[in-house]
Simulated scan of single mutants.
Amino acid sequence: MEPQAQQARPTGAAHDPLVRLRGVRKTFPMPAGAPPVVAVDDVSLTIAAGSVIALTGPSGSGKSTLLHMIGAIEHCDEGVIEVAGRPVSGLSSAQASAYRRGIGLVFQRFHLLPALTALDNVVVPVLPFRTDFDKLARARELLALVGLADKTAALPSRLSGGQQQRVAIARALINRPSLLLADEPTGNLDSHNGTAVMDLLLRLRDEQGATIVVATHDAGIAARCDQVLHLTDGRLTDTP
């Protein structure tokens, strides 16, 4: 029997806190006895359901690490992370995998499988699981949503960078997540395609009520978000 793909997805009424972090800290060990690197240092914040939040800061400031901890890709060393009231910071490997199937993850480098079509790339996250929706129909619907209805049979090598990122966003939405974490989603795109991707993310918030957290270097992208959180040396600061 196929395992069930539909996990409890994070939900919340608009403006209620969906994500809470309290005193979150993450360090990474260094070789040869060097002191560990503090990637995230005593971060506390709340993110309201239905909001679009920008995480800004220079390279190495902790943006990606913070997103990865909210997405249960990394564990925090100290503190508490809750999504929709559910502790995320102490999940086992199996629990973290199940949790990630209920959220959306978008990365700068797309991570599309080169031998699969756009349609198949969108289906991949739910392919091994039983779902309460038709997988291929849902994938086609999502590709149409991101403006790629005519690219279902295209391999990633036949798509532009902007089109590949839109396939990656469609893939992240296959399980109808209410929380979408996007790590530098426009970092490899030109300004036109970057603007188009941000337009799409804002439309997802407006039409589907998704809560979106975007890590970005782009001040123009950040300015379009509901709130901008700036990280410096792993700590939240008031101003860039």
Rank of each mutant, 00 (worst) to 15 (best):
A39I: 12
D218K: 08
D16M: 14
A14E: 13
T237A: 15
L105D: 05
Q4F: 14
H75M: 03
H75E: 06
T46Q: 15
R100I: 10
S191G: 02
C225N: 10
G50E: 07
T117S: 15
I174S: 05
S97F: 00
K26P: 08
V197G: 07
K26I: 10
N175H: 10
P128Q: 08
R158M: 12
S89M: 00
I73M: 13
S64A: 05
N175Y: 03
A34N: 02
A84K: 02
R140V: 07
A48Q: 14
E207M: 06
A196Q: 06
I221V: 15
E184K: 02
R109F: 15
S61W: 05
T211L: 02
A98Y: 01
A13I: 04
S61T: 01
P128E: 08
D206F: 09
S157C: 10
F133V: 12
L136W: 13
I103Y: 06
T237W: 12
A170L: 00
R100E: 07
P240D: 11
E141H: 10
D183T: 09
I73V: 14
G234L: 11
S61P: 08
R86E: 14
V43F: 11
D41A: 04
L113N: 06
G187R: 02
T65D: 10
S157Y: 08
Q163D: 02
L201D: 09
H15C: 04
A72H: 04
V38L: 13
G220R: 13
L229D: 05
I169W: 03
T27E: 14
V24G: 07
F133D: 13
R158Q: 15
L55P: 11
I70K: 07
L127T: 12
R9I: 12
R140Q: 15
L231Y: 00
A139P: 12
G33W: 11
R101F: 04
R166K: 09
C225H: 10
L91M: 14
A139N: 12
L66W: 04
R205C: 00
L189H: 05
F28C: 06
V43L: 13
D218I: 04
A14I: 12
